[in-house]
Write a protein that binds this DNA or RNA. Sequence first.
DNA 1: CCCATAATACCGACCAGTCGGTATCATGCT
DNA 2: AGCATGATACCGACTGGTCGGTATTATGGG
Lengths: 216, 216
Amino acid sequence: MGYQNEAMNTRDRLIGAMIDLVRQKGYDAVRVEDVCAAAGVSKGAFFHYFKSKQEIAEIAADTWRDNSCGLFASMGFVQGDDRDASARDKLLRYVDFRISLIEGSKEIYEFCCYAGTLVQEVHATHPDLNDRAAAGIINHVAQLEPICVEALADAGRDVAEAPALARYFQTVMQGALLMAKAYRTPDAAIFSLRQFKTHLALLFDGSRPKPEEPSP
Amino acid sequence: MGYQNEAMNTRDRLIGAMIDLVRQKGYDAVRVEDVCAAAGVSKGAFFHYFKSKQEIAEIAADTWRDNSCGLFASMGFVQGDDRDASARDKLLRYVDFRISLIEGSKEIYEFCCYAGTLVQEVHATHPDLNDRAAAGIINHVAQLEPICVEALADAGRDVAEAPALARYFQTVMQGALLMAKAYRTPDAAIFSLRQFKTHLALLFDGSRPKPEEPSP
DNA sequence: CCCATAATACCGACCAGTCGGTATCATGCT
DNA sequence: AGCATGATACCGACTGGTCGGTATTATGGG
């Protein structure tokens, strides 16, 4: 889940390093020299490509949004292999996917949300940056909404609550990540996401989710 | 919801100012001179009572925890007026209470969680501070757990999921606050909490919550 | 007088951003 | 090819302001 590698050009390595470091330490605690060191370049290179620390953070927010958007779109939830799966299944599988991302990480920052981390920290101090980061979150909610509409319709529920349900996805994801930090273990996030699955199953089926993967 | 007033002594005013400012701007962005100005004292007074910025943040975390704990305990959820209310009702009413707190606030920071804000920001950079803040969150989860046990038992559900459910409360609360920041409106948090109520009602009743207060 | 409380002046580390410079590569002219 | 021209990429010493923390001094109650 590293956001940079050798093959990238300098600019992209800097952006990738920025994303990784902010997810680890937060915006303010990251020094531009840290970013340079992580990308293996000098301060001169940094300010050649970006006019300020805030600018790279904003551009990184766009990158994050595009990557999240692309990842989600490419994994068959919107279209693709699971084109024929029910909306209900898509949503539950998506939660499973997020759980698997957490389980596959060694460090908490690896599954942290760049956008969520930023929003929490810079909401009042850097309004422009906050809004760029928030766009990633809002964008993802918009992606989920049509699937929620379909799933609610299939379940015979009021479609009008789809926007709230889509937002609720992000609410739980972001809250789960915070809990992982509070408890200092990814398990705290996983527990919350499993609880969320129970909610979804009740909402769509009026019952528990079928145990596709047994809980350890 | 201001955390300091004229009548308090210098030390408590400083702690209250710290809490308010951190909830507005985050830990790093708050300068000790800001805290002094908000409390109406000088730097000399600040360092007379606290040996460092981190120390006041840690002590403020304890204050926050104790106040949250006390508030929760004093409002009849654990004991008191609603001693005879069902656990199910206590939990739903608690969510309503949190919603009312948000509705009664003009600024987002007024209903923000000092502990949650800190945990997000200082998780990796200030481990000790993180843990002191996290204690408030974990403590609150522990308060909710016995009520969850009771509510689940009453509903004929598996009591073993009570710890996960109690944690889920915090997950949703914290996530909802982040969403309010992302959308720049308290409504985003309220929507999520209402969705959460739906979840709880399904879990306990297998149906929608009775509309005690009509949704606007 | 003494101690707690508080104010002011000051220090020094830290860090975003600057700036003068070099290296590399593309282009076009002869 | 050879060379001038210039653009892009990159370097790292330096600066100027910020801010946590300290040293020193003032005040006032017991």
